[in-house]
Every structure is written in C-alpha cells, then in structure tokens.
Design a protein around this nucleic acid. Structure first.
Lengths: 314, 314
DNA sequence: CGGATCCATGAAGCGATCCTAAAACGTCGC
DNA sequence: GCGACGTTTTAGGATCGCTTCATGGATCCG
C-alpha cells in the first residue's frame, strides 16, 4: 500500500473530482488518474466510479479512504516524532561525572530538579582521554582537565562549569600550614600523594615539577579525593586538591600556590546533537547554577575562613 | 516521511545491524545504508550511530522507530480495509425493489434479518430498461422482466429469485371466472388494465395480442397492482397479475392462461463486485429463501384453493 | 440536435529515485 | 599487522511517476 496513492484516494473522497484532487496536490489530473489506477490494480473491488463526468468513491473506496486517513495521521506523527523527542521537557537525562564532581553536583542536582527532566546519575572516573568517549553513553559528561592541557576534541560540545584552582592540601599540624600561601619551592621537596597515571591532576603535578625543575617524590597514587584527604590527614604526604569540590575535613587545610597558577577546568561535555534536547539544556542550566553557587560560597568562605584557618594553626 | 525508510529504521532497531536488516528485507546492505542516509538527511539529529562495527539507533532514532511502528500498523490496517469492508457481516445492505416485490419481500426480509446485515429498503418502480442503472445506487436491485424479453446487460450479475407465471385477474362475478383456466381467445376481446409504457408487464400483454393476432383494448394504465386489483374488482377490466406476489383480494381471482405461457422473471440485479460482500450475499440468501417459500406456499394454495375457487364461482 | 466545454484516461517521453555491484573504509580478533 | 566482517561510497542500470499531448464520454446551451 502506497501512502501517496492512499492520499490521492482520500482527497478524491473529500473533493469529488480528479481535477480538484490534482489542483490540491499540485499535479496534473493525469497523474492522479494514474495513481488511482495503480491503487485499483491491487484491489479486488472498484474503489471509484464515474458519476456523470466526475469520479467519486465507492463504499469500498470510502472504507479504504478512512484507513488512508489513519495512515496520514501516523505519518504526520512520525514527522513530529523526533521533534517531540527533542522538546519533551520531562525526558530523562543521563549524566556522568567524575567522582568529586559527582559528590558535589549530584545531590544538589536532585534537589534542584523539581518537576522538570529526570536526571539519571552515574559516576565515571576515567582517564582524561576517555572522557569524550563517554558522551556516547551519557547525555552530559562532567569531565575535568588541567589548564593548558590538550583541549577536548572539536566534535564534542563543551560547556564550562567551573574554573577551579588547585590548592595544596596539608594536615593541620604541618609546618607549612602556618603560611597563608605557598611557593613551588615550599612544596617541591615534600612527599606527594598523586593520582593514577593518565588522570587529569597528574598534569598539574608535572607543571609543579617543571617549575621546581626537579622531579617530585610521589609516594602514593590515589584517585579518590576522600581517600587522598584521609591520607593527607594521616601524614602520608601533601596533595593537590580542588578548591571548590574537595571533601571538607577539619584536619586538612588548603593553601594556594603563590608563584604557579595550577587549576583545572570542570566542563560539561556533550555530543552537539544532545544539546538540542530541551531536557538536556534544562539540566545544563541547573548544573551551571550549581557551579556558580559553589564559587560564590567558596569565595565568601575564603574571606571568612582566613582568620579561622589561622585559629586552626594556632 | 517515507514509510519504506521508516520500516528500515524500525528493522534496524529490532535487528541491530545493517546486514541483518538487509537480509530481512531481501535487499543489499548498500540499499539499507542509502535508505538510512536519506532518512537522516531530513532529521535534525543523528538517528543512528556506530557501535563498534555495527550500526545502532540513537534515542532519537528509537523515538522515530516507535512512530514508524504506528505507520506500519496503519498501513497494514489499510491493506485489510477493503477486505474488512467486504467481510463485515453487520454492514448495511441497500435494497431496491419494484412495488409488488417490495410489498412481498421487504416485510419478510426484516423479520428474517435477525442479527446479521442491516437491510435498507427502498421501492423503485422504474421502466424495465432502467433497472440495471439502479445498481449504481443500491447493493441489490430486485427487478423483473417478462420471459423472452431482452436479458439484463452482461455487466450486471443476475440472481434469479422467482419465475412467476402471470395469471389473468378477474372479478369474482365475471363470466370467465367459472373456468379453471383460460385461453388467449377468451381474454383477447376483454377490456384490459395494462401498465405504463416501458414497464415490464407490457411485453406479456403484447405477447397475448400477438397470439390472438389482434390488438388488445387497453382501457387503463396502472402500474400498481393494488390499484389495478381494485379496478379489476370494480369491473374496470381484466389484468395480468403475478401469481405469487399479487395483492390478495377476496373479490379478485386469478386464472391461468392455458395456451400461452406468460410469465415474468424476478431477479436480483447487482454489480458483480457487490456480490463479494458477505452481508450482500447473506441478504441474497435470505431473499432466495423467501422466494422459495413463496412458490411452495403458492403451489399448495393452488391445490387447496382450486375447490375453494370453484365454491367462489358457485 | 449539434457544437463547445469540461472531465477523465491513455500513450510517449523524460527525470528522479532506488536498487545492485564493486570497491573503499573502519573495526575487531588472531 | 593481517584477514575477516560490517558499513559506506560510487557508478551504472532499471523502474517508477510525472508531464505533455491526444482521445473519448458527458453535460450544457444555443
């Protein structure tokens, strides 16, 4: 059954003459006549009959025309199917985030979500190079990379969420903890807790080593900041920690590096076409709001906590 | 939106590879790939993506494939639409009948119909030549014509219902009423009540005139047998009346012609395609049953009434 | 009653479309 | 890395549907 022929039959039912159908469909009457003849060839009974000099539907033709209307409806629905999918505000959105971003963003996201899209969260702590590939399985991938590292591939859409300084995490009793900020020389001879090879923060550590012009002593390799912070507190070494998303511990303090700007970018990665989905952009907006709040809260905390940290030192 | 392309997309969703789809649709993988490419051209977002070396649907593709399923369903329904129309046992059937057949068949038809097709009755008393044209407006046309007259056109399907002798109707006091049967000579000099020109019974009257080798005196022209019978009773003349379907009157009796076989055929006329409808054939069967009953009842009545008529004469 | 007009249909030709075949490209497993 | 597998691309050929033009009924009107 050819929908084109069915449409012609339906038009004939509505308009009552081949010529009128032809005018409505912007073709010649001959074309309409041929379409009807082709449709008739497959039918066991006449679908049309002549009334005077015009052509009208038989009852069988009317029955088929009614079915043709359903076909046209289904086709119109198919026409809109992709658009409906794109604009469905309640569709679920799959989000992946590396561990510390997951811990920071996901709870806030669930609180903020409300009646809109349903977020489906997953933690994915992978090597830096593997973040873009995750966009195949997730609508939004919250990824991170050090400043000055290889940018994300051009085919992924990047929405910056945070530009987050990396501070040096020290146990509260540490000799360097009394300083308000540190230099590369201060930290270059300390034992370090680094991350697994290939993971983003390693690039920042290498930048410190380069600035100090000597290799760092890397004692432990811990990807999870919660574990790393516990090791820092236990005197296992110092570590780089993100300023806004690191787990807060009373026995670990953060000190910025004065003479070397180390920071990471926290970005939302997407395939460009996913950004066309209404529910995805909605979630993206919420993530951006959360990121903005994080920096604002952190900045005010820095001003407030500076004396508090001093008290801790004392 | 091309249903062919949509079907390919749907198959891809079910089968998971272009090759499998190609095998299922009996085309080459190349054809499938091209169909998908054509469909993709009209879509704003990717519908498919490669997974390893096979091709799978994206979420958008799945949304469209779901709509494609509806399209396929509608098309399948359209495929069956004509057949469903033909086999619908409860569909209404439009029946036309000339007056005396209408009076005889329609009431019995309504009683016998039961839960099957719904008959829609109409009386159409037209000239003999116009009966076939009525099949344009009615599913079944009950028509009649004299024996030996022009047969119905070849393009109309004819189902014989009755082969009905035409008797001579006489008022009960008429001199000829004492005979058990009549000859052409008996009736050829009587005043006649005929029908309008062009109407079927006229042919039979002409046959009588030809057999008698003289023109009949036609005094009145009445198409309706009820009216004609009333005129016969009132002494307005004698008339030809059908044996099985004439209105019964106590003051009018029928006598057969011994030496000239005059009869009419009562036939159901249809366009051939209408006979394919289940509900039409059902009604046709009921009509045939009714016709059979009419002849049986009439034959027994003739045997029973013969003495009764004699008593009437006495 | 006959010409004029309108409508539907058929034949021929052309262009678009869809398929097949063959080759290229990318991916996976050994 | 090489071969096998799966998909895609390109070229070519067949098919299909449309337009143009011509034909045949049916209706209207003088």
């Amino acid at each position: 059954m050819d929908p084109r022929q069915l449409a012609v039959l339906r038009e004939l039912g509505d308009r009552g003459s081949v010529t009128a159908v032809a005018a409505a469909l912007f073709v010649t009457p001959s074309a309409v006549s041929q379409q009807l003849a082709a449709l008739q060839r497959r039918a066991a009974v006449p679908l049309t009959e002549r009334r005077g000099r015009t052509l009208v539907l038989t009852d069988a033709g009317r029955a088929l025309a009614a079915a043709a209307a359903e076909v046209a409806t289904a086709l119109a629905r198919a026409d809109r199917a992709v658009d409906d999918y794109l604009t469905d505000p309640h569709a679920s959105v799959r989000i992946a985030a590396f561990h510390s971003a997951a811990a920071t963003f996901f709870p806030r996201l669930l609180q903020a979500a409300g009646s809109g899209p349903v977020p489906e969260c997953a933690d994915q702590d992978v090597e830096q190079a593997r973040f873009p590939a995750l966009t195949a399985d997730y609508d939004i991938v919250i990824a991170h990379r050090p400043d000055h590292s290889q940018p994300w591939p051009a085919e992924t859409k990047v929405t910056p969420l945070l530009h987050e300084p990396l501070d040096v995490a020290l146990p509260i009793g540490h000799p360097l903890a009394s300083r308000t900020d540190l230099s590369v020389a201060d930290v270059s001879d300390q034992p370090w807790i680094a991350v697994q090879t290939g993971y983003p923060l390693l690039g920042s550590l290498e930048a410190i080593a380069a600035a100090a012009d000597r290799p760092l002593q890397i004692r432990h390799r811990i990807n999870d900041f919660t574990v790393a912070a516990a090791l820092v507190a236990a005197g296992g070494g110092i570590a780089l920690m993100p300023r806004y998303t690191a787990p807060a511990r009373p026995d670990v303090i953060l000190r910025s590096l004065r003479d070397l700007h180390v920071a990471r970018r926290v970005d939302a990665l997407m395939r460009p076409e996913r950004a066309l989905r209404t529910s995805v952009t909605t979630i993206l907006g919420v993530l951006d709001d959360i990121a903005r709040q994080l920096t604002e809260v952190a900045e005010t905390k820095v001003t407030d906590q500076q004396p508090q940290d001093s008290r801790d030192d004392a």
